[in-house]
């Protein structure tokens, strides 16, 4: 079914044992869409992502990923978590990390996880795509915040995903790096669906088609309709919107 939604949630409720973190959540995302998930801290953004990934199961309602329960189809997701969660002292190279995107295959190499030539080539291609081809041998610890983000995106791309799910891709990176990331995501959106969590609506406003506002309940707005009033309702206060159009002349990420 070419037109089946990539993600669909139907009347979903979730709680960690106390009051519901999310309730009455219903929406769907079609193939090749680019959407942004926004909302205040503690509003349920991370919970929503974990429900989509199948790491959490809703108490009520249904989550479908490519028309199936997430646990069965989540290998089609390329997931990029926030890079700040990693132990900065972990002894691991960029290549080691990107190759993790090739885990979970069938057969003997799938059992032990040892990678072959095809896996290495896929990792090199993914690094090339994010403009980090020459960094394969570098220790992850030696990279800057923006470089780490790109390595984690490369790892997600190495999964050959149909859906790219990014958690805070612009946290702790400066605006120049941000503009380049946006350019990269625009390119990737030509061939895959993109869902990202972001604090920074201005960053994505020219790119995503709709905005998913999460604050216990979930409301989906087409980007064109996201007004100051919507944001005010969502965050309960004034939020300054910044447009980043001034970086659009910077060109693609490959130098």
């Amino acid at each position: 079914m070419p037109n089946e939604p990539v993600i669909s949630l139907n009347d979903v409720m979730f709680s960690y044992g106390g009051p519901p973190v999310l309730e009455d959540v219903s929406f769907s995302i079609a193939a090749r869409q680019a959407v942004c998930v926004v909302g205040p801290n503690g509003g349920g953004k991370t919970t929503l992502i974990k429900l989509i990934l199948g790491l959490l199961t809703p108490q009520h309602g249904e989550v479908l990923l490519f028309g199936e329960p997430p646990r069965r189809s989540r290998q089609r997701i390329g997931y990029m978590p926030q890079h700040a969660q990693y132990d900065p002292l972990f002894p691991v190279s960029v290549m080691d990390i990107v190759l993790m995107g090739r885990l979970g295959q069938r057969g003997l190499s799938g059992l032990t996880g040892w990678h072959g030539r095809a896996d290495r080539q896929a990792a090199i291609d993914a690094l090339d795509e994010v403009g980090m081809k020459d960094f394969g041998r570098q220790p992850f610890a030696a990279l800057s915040g923006g470089q780490r983000q790109r390595v984690l995106i490369a790892r997600a791309l190495c999964c050959k995903p149909d859906l790219l799910l990014l958690d805070e891709p612009t946290s702790n990176v400066d605006s120049l790096v941000e503009a380049r990331l946006l350019e990269l995501l625009r390119e990737l959106n030509q061939r895959m669906t993109i869902v990202m969590v972001s604090h920074d609506l201005g960053f994505v406003s020219g790119f995503v088609e709709s905005v998913i506002c999460v604050n216990r309940r979930v409301v989906v707005h087409p980007t064109s309709q996201v007004s100051g009033q919507v944001i005010h309702d969502l965050y309960g206060g004034e939020v300054r919107m910044v447009h980043h159009d001034e970086f659009s002349h910077l060109g693609p990420i490959h130098d």
Binding site: F90, M100, G101, G104
Partner: peptide, 11 residues
């Protein structure tokens, strides 16, 4: 390094 991502890969 990252058990969550690894789990998503079906490991």
């Amino acid at each position: 390094f990252d058990d969550e991502f690894t789990e998503l890969r079906g490991v």
